[in-house]
Design a binder for these strands. Structure first.
Length: 415
RNA sequence: GUGGCCAUAGCUCAAUGGUAGAGCCCCAGAUUGUGGUUCUGGCUGUUGCGGGUUCGAGUCCCGUUGGCCACCCCA
């Protein structure tokens, strides 16, 4: 049997409905924050990603040569595309931009739990504002996205850090700039490595760095950020944690990652400030400060499944998405034309209505109505021109003359 | 890319080296106009694939593909 390629998913109706519900929740929350949606191409020149991330990342790219001999890559993330778009069109929009996108992204890697070769990523970015208020606004959005799925500060935490804190420290200890990215990566891994190994890799700066990692560092910038979130009542969701560095080279300031408190899953979301990337990608033509984050559908989906309140809400949304308003039961085949005529009017009125395409036993039709989640059935039989409406939840039946049908339905469930 | 564990019906799983099964799902019925429960019947397998050992392999061995986990990396 043909299967999807490794790391790629089929979305059958239930999981497709869940995906749509997830997207709808993302969109609604972003719009509440005044973010507008954009999108870019799924396929980009490989060069776009090399320029930003260096050659080691190319090993993980889903790339190939197209029929025109171009080196192309299925986008692994959206930020480089965003930088290109913004560098080209920045004069057309008022600053700051608050943009979001729901993008399918790809990587060529062995799949694991929470990590496929394809996933959907919500990207939110604020461009053209270098103030700390932009970080606060963006992180508040990240938190509210989680709250929209019924997660509380008991389940999730945003760990806040600052790359500038570390680069200042390294500069103060006269560490040459070309060693910074190696050292930052050691700091990033320190949580998962034995202390002495970390110390050895840090070399001359081991002392001061470990002191900070053991809780000795203070960042006024991050404390002010927490205060700004406290104003919004969101401080319980965040924790200053300087061990967060993030892997990508382009971050220049505040960085953050969202985790589940139980530590079961990988990071749910992550982001930070990247003030130089747009300048870099536009060869200096356009400079715009920027801060953004991404949140993937895979880990978030696992998290929703693991938290009862979130799972129940998602289940409800999925059922609601596929539920019918009405199912037409054709008890007498000679009434089928009457049923089909009303079917059309009911659908035109905006109701979700289904009916049996071929002659079917009445009992079976009620089973189908039930299975499709119909609120009520309309029965077409000897009563015509009246129709018997049955509310499935209460088993209540009501004989409705033809001319009362629409007003009755309208009154019972106004849209 | 490296290593470890796993692979049986659509799904969840049984089956000392000796004729491949159960539950769920799905489909059809239970005197022909009323659903969630119940009962009966039916459907489905080259036991992931390819070799090998054996009188005989779902079971043992090798390879391969896929899945899970760890590493690498993290968007």
């Amino acid at each position: 049997m043909m299967q999807p390629l490794p790391g790629f998913r089929d979305f059958l109706p239930p999981s497709c409905a869940a995906r749509n519900a997830l997207f709808a929740c993302w969109r609604e929350t972003c719009r509440r924050y005044g973010f507008v949606e954009w999108d870019g191409p799924i396929l980009e020149p490989t060069e776009l990603f090399q320029k930003k991330s260096g050659p080691e990342i190319v090993a993980q790219l889903f790339n190939f040569t197209d029929k025109g001999g171009r080196e192309v890559t299925l986008r692994p993330e959206l930020t480089p595309t965003l930088a290109r778009v913004v560098a080209t069109h920045e004069r057309e929009f008022r600053k700051p931009f608050k943009w979001f996108s729901i993008a399918q992204c790809f990587r060529y890697e062995k799949q694991q739990r929470g990590r496929l070769r394809e996933h959907f990523q919500l990207n939110c970015d604020i461009l053209g504002d270098a103030s700390p208020a932009a970080e606060a606004e963006l992180i508040a959005l990240a938190i509210d996205l989680l709250r929209a799925f019924r997660f509380t500060e008991k389940e999730v935490v945003v760990r806040l850090s600052d790359r500038e804190f570390w680069t200042d420290l390294l500069r103060a200890h006269s560490v040459p700039e070309e060693r910074w990215s190696d050292l930052l990566s050691v700091i990033d891994k320190s949580e998962r490595e034995p202390r002495d190994k970390t110390a050895a890799q840090l070399g001359s700066v081991a002392g001061p760095v470990l002191e900070v990692l053991d809780g000795g560092g203070r960042s006024e910038k991050l404390e002010q950020l927490v205060d700004a979130l406290r104003l919004r009542g969101l401080a319980d969701f965040v924790k200053i944690d300087l061990s967060i560095v993030r892997g990508l080279a382009y971050y220049t300031g505040v960085v953050f990652e969202v985790f589940d408190r139980s530590g079961t899953f990988r990071a749910i979301a992550g982001g930070g400030r990247y003030d130089n990337l747009i300048g870099q990608l536009s060869d200096g033509a356009v400079g715009l400060p920027a801060v953004g984050f991404a949140m993937g559908d895979v880990v978030l989906g696992e998290m929703i499944a693991a938290v009862p309140a979130a799972r129940e809400r998602m289940t409800k949304l999925v059922l609601n998405a596929q539920a019918l308003d009405l199912y037409l039961v054709i008890a007498k085949e000679e009434r089928r034309p009457d049923a089909v005529r009303q079917l059309q009017s009911l659908r035109e009125a905006g109701w979700r209505v289904d009916y049996p395409l071929t002659p079917t036993k009445v009992g079976k039709q009620f089973q189908i109505a039930e299975a499709f989640g119909a609120k009520a059935t309309l029965l077409y039989g000897d009563e015509w021109p009246s129709v018997k409406m049955k509310t499935l939840a209460t088993r209540e039946e009501l004989l409705l003359p033809n001319e009362d049908l629409f007003t009755h339905i309208q009154r019972t469930w106004s849209h």
